[in-house]
Amino acid sequence: MEGDIVQMGAYIGAGLACMGMGGAAVGVGSIVGNYLSGALRNPSAASGQTAMLFIGIAFSEAFGIFSFLVALLLMFAV
């Protein structure tokens, strides 16, 4: 056996942190899906809300990126 128990913990933690990205995926999917269904109901109002769509996606995606960052930190920096 190589390595030590801390490193094992770090790797397991990195894997667990990656699960957070699934949450971000669900969030982004929900935002885009709701935007689409709203846009299909009222297409004339859709173009004015693309900025809000991107802001929402960015906020939601940020948390996925955070979890990815935590995984990277555990893998390479701890």
Binding site: A58, E61, A62, I65, F66, F68, L69, L72
Partner: peptide, 8 residues
């Protein structure tokens, strides 16, 4: 972190 994280 959003920008750096996405690109990285």
């Amino acid at each position: 972190i959003r920008l750096a994280g996405n690109v990285m």
